[in-house]
Design a protein around this nucleic acid. Structure first.
Lengths: 156, 156
RNA sequence: UGACACCGCGUGUU
DNA sequence: AACACGCGGTGTCA
């Protein structure tokens, strides 16, 4: 995949490990926060999932491998996104999909199945290692905080 | 029934009497063409049938009563809809239903029986008066023509 | 199992 | 304003 991954260069050691993620596709999408994905060939939904995957991978390095900032100071992560699609998928639909063989409500195959499986595996691994992972949906109006992080991360 | 019926305000006298019909339910459906039905309490299937009934009633006034545009210039009507349910029902299933006492393939009563009967009576009456009635199923992709009529009829 | 319709929500791009 | 991508639900039939 030809993703561009954004991560903050310098982060406060005591920062609350809540993750703001965002995905964008094509030439005008360069939003990011803790983790952002920009890809020109994927669908918008795919970039949202890939951003979540990258964020959870960071969480793995942080919590399990202790590569970032020294581990052990926090108890879980919260992924905040404006994608109701992503939140509903990871908090509701995945459980049905794993039961029914990844079929849509109209019995068609789930389109981003592989990415969702990858994300789910990473999340479940964290959960089993006592690192709760939560998905929060935040609305467009409350993105002032996100914008600030975007500017800080991209140096704009 | 609390239907709203749309018909064109001014129609060319020589217009081809092919009917584009459409039904929608709830608050966001105000598509129409020659005949459109909007209802907030019926099912989507019911509105499709009701739109067909309204269209055939217009055909009655046009062909049999001569109320519209002067009769006698055309030889039949074609109802174009995107509802495979309506087309299959009127071109295939009704004949079985009239034979088997309006029973589904799993021996349940046909849900919109009364509306189908009303429509069938109107259609048969036209047919017996040498006015052929045909149902065509048109797909979503070829709705450019329909959209133009919708805009003209609704004044958007 | 398949088909069609209707409705709702969100995202992305121009 | 337009396009496309994704999901859920209900109503109907074969």
């Amino acid at each position: 995949m030809s993703h561009r991954l954004y991560t903050p260069n310098s982060v406060d050691n005591t920062m609350d490990p809540r993750g703001l993620i965002d995905g964008a596709c094509s030439n005008n999408g360069n939003l990011d926060a803790w983790v952002g994905i920009v890809d020109g060939s994927q669908t918008s939904q795919c970039t949202e999932i890939c951003a979540a995957i990258a964020a959870v991978r960071l969480a793995h390095q942080f919590f399990l491998n202790g590569e970032f900032w020294g581990a052990g100071h926090v108890k879980g992560i919260i992924l905040m996104t404006n994608s109701a699609y992503l939140v509903s998928a990871m908090t509701d639909w995945v459980y049905k999909w794993k039961r029914n063989g990844w079929k849509t409500s109209i019995r068609k195959p789930v389109v981003n199945m592989e990415d969702f499986i990858e994300l789910d595996v990473l999340v479940q691994y964290l959960e089993q290692n006592c690192v709760p992972v939560r998905f929060w949906c935040i609305d467009r109006e409350h993105n002032t905080f996100v914008d600030a992080l975007v500017k800080a991360a991209t140096g704009l």
